[in-house]
Amino acid sequence: MSDFWFEFVEITQTVGDGLLFGATYALIGIGFTLIFGAMGKLNMTYAGASLAGAYAGLAAFTFVNAPALVVFLVSALASGFIGFVVYVACFRFIPVNNHLAALMASIGALFFIDEIVIHATDGSPLTFPAMFEYVMFDLGPYGIRGDLLFVFVVCVVSTAGLVYVLYRSRLGLATRAVSQQDVAARLCGIDVHRTNAITFVLAGLLGGIAGSMTAAAVGVLSPLVTIPLTVKGLIVTVIGGLGSIPGAIVAGLLVGGLENVFLYFRGVNERDMYVLLLLFVFLVFRPHGISGTAIDRD
């Protein structure tokens, strides 16, 4: 095998791994974007709540030895429930036009949820179950991780499910109506609070899947991941274009793939600097993100 061919395989494999892993970033990005689209607000708790959901799933694994699929399901449900609680605690009763107070309350909730998890686990890394954990598909010179493939498929399916709910059901119609024109929606008899709460639950369900998929892909879960995942989720949201679900998907995969390329060529110390530069490039040359139709409001 020539050097060039070897290098080519290495790079494509690197990009491929990153793309598969990027699916989890995409899910987190979708969650941020969904809530922003609905309320025009930033829910800083989101990534932390997603991981907390994964911890609830892990509890099912630890205490009743539930199979991996049940663990993922419990994660999603728990995170959906947390989403509802966060809505009530941080958004429902704070005046609609007070963005700062809602933002700050959600930061308080992030601290709270994170610290609860830390208390429950002493912050130790814990084994997280995965599907097809040590399966490796060999395709010629390439190896594809079975578990990541599964993660990728789950991400695609749950995104498709979300899009179906948003665009094909009455519920979705209400959600979209509120996100586009909440006064008009109210006049049409849509209960804005109820719709917002449902958006939070939906985003939460998705977050629980993202959290458990991230944990499954690493194989270990630790509260260390919360802040980096929050930052990465926000970057994906902005690169994708605020409020755009397709944008968040593309941006998640893009960040996942490129981050591996930066790592491969420049080493880990500079990797994240290039990801941030990528964001700056978007902000300067394409401030509305990939989708180009971002909702422009503060």
Binding site: F36, V231, L234, I235, V238, L276, L283, P287, D298
Partner: peptide, 19 residues
């Protein structure tokens, strides 16, 4: 950039400085 975009842009700046 305004609003959330500015929030994320400034996070990115400060992370860049930290790195």
């Amino acid at each position: 950039v305004k609003g959330l975009m500015l929030v994320v842009a400034t996070i990115a700046f400060s992370e860049f400085v930290r790195l």
